[in-house]
Design a protein around this nucleic acid. Structure first.
Lengths: 218, 218
DNA sequence: ATCATACAGTTGACAGTGTCATCTGAACCG
DNA sequence: CGGTTCAGATGACACTGTCAACTGTATGAT
């Protein structure tokens, strides 16, 4: 961490600071709290600086999501290649990793599962501005998609090692979507423990057991 | 539809028009597109009129969500009390009803599962304004919660008729959360059919079959 | 019938916000 | 050394949510 004089180093440092500030604000108060002005202030730069690194606010949030997906992907990769863990433990760990994001960083979790590439459905009047603001121009979403896909690939490999190539995809998709739903409803407060007499963790256990039983996994 | 002269009728009419306009804008461009000014314009009133019927923008969106939950609840109630349907058909229909909302009105679906009553976690600086804007002052969320809970009760009854009181809650929660996750990932574009070799509908089928098998339902 | 009141609706104003056009200065490179 | 590029700063604009003050009319009591 030498004194940074070169322009590239300085730019990279500010970009990093912008991403960190955005993530911090996101955790504090959700996407609405991620103000380009506040992001710039926390990064030590001023209002319009983020536009030198991202095309706009949505692009910044997408970049935060991309980095998070990469982190989650690394986490699941580490689980998958850990020889000390059983296949079942790897699966539970991977599901748990996703759910933990929802618990520890709920706002980020919602950004991770933001709608991408909404349909071109015609929307008249002044909606184009909002459409552009929502889905971003292009470029950044691609890396976020790749990162999210890498996570899914890692997860798929874990399921395949447990259920075989034949059923991996079907059961993997069911496990992943169900875990996402459990996390989402717990996060939104729609999973009332008193009403359902169960918890998110129990649901994950039931789900895994059910799938392993149905799929003749060992 | 007589000529409305009484103040109560007029107020009720504008409230209805406000809700309709908000729902329409929500479908068109998401919550960001629901502008109080545009809502007022489409309802034939002006900027600040909505504040006579709702405490703010979030309150308006919450009211839209409440009405939608009531509609979904009615729909599932109709399914549950339809003597021409088998228990299994009722279950599939209820799950399908929820997923169809996600397909036909994706933005509304996200509002339906908005976080309610976020934790009081301390958030310094100027975050209080955002906190208030996000979760609303109070009053309205209660009716939305009741409506959402009624839907869950209807759904629970359907599952109970199929799996018995003993397992209804555990399996009902799993079915509901999983269906929510399937809908959510399909909606956000994270459920790649090419990658997973399956579709949301197939996942629902697999899920229902798995639960019925595991629960010894008929 | 008269009049005070409540209250739906309007308007003006204000603080923020995302975004762009323009400007500035220093690192870069021939 | 001089021109160029580019990160960053600043001014400006349109738009937003929200509130205070205001207006007019239906309501209800007298």
């Amino acid at each position: 961490m030498g004194v940074m004089t070169t322009r590239a180093e300085s730019a990279a440092a500010t970009r990093r600071a912008l991403l960190d500030a955005a993530a911090e604000l996101l955790d504090l108060g959700g996407p609405e709290a991620v103000t380009l002005r506040e992001v710039g202030a926390r990064a030590g730069v001023s209002r319009g600086a983020p536009y030198r690194h991202f095309t706009g606010k949505d692009s910044l949030l997408t970049a935060v999501a991309a980095e998070s997906w990469e982190g989650i992907g690394d986490q699941v990769h580490a689980l998958r290649t850990d020889p000390a863990l059983s296949a079942s433990e790897k699966l539970r760990g991977a599901l748990r990793a996703l759910i933990d994001v929802g618990r520890n960083r709920p706002h980020l979790y919602q950004v991770l599962f933001r709608r991408r590439a909404n349909l071109p459905g015609q929307l008249g009047d002044g909606m184009d501005r909002i459409r552009r603001q929502l889905c971003g121009p292009e470029g950044d979403p691609a890396v976020a998609d790749r990162a999210a896909e890498r996570f899914q690939d890692e997860f798929l490999d874990i399921v395949a090692a447990l259920a075989g190539e034949r059923n991996a995809r079907r059961y993997g998709a069911l496990l992943l979507t169900s875990a996402h739903g459990i996390a989402g409803m717990e996060l939104s407060g729609h999973l009332d423990t008193d009403k359902w007499h169960t918890t998110a963790d129990e649901l994950v256990d039931t789900l895994v057991r059910m799938v392993t039983d149905a799929g003749e996994m060992t």
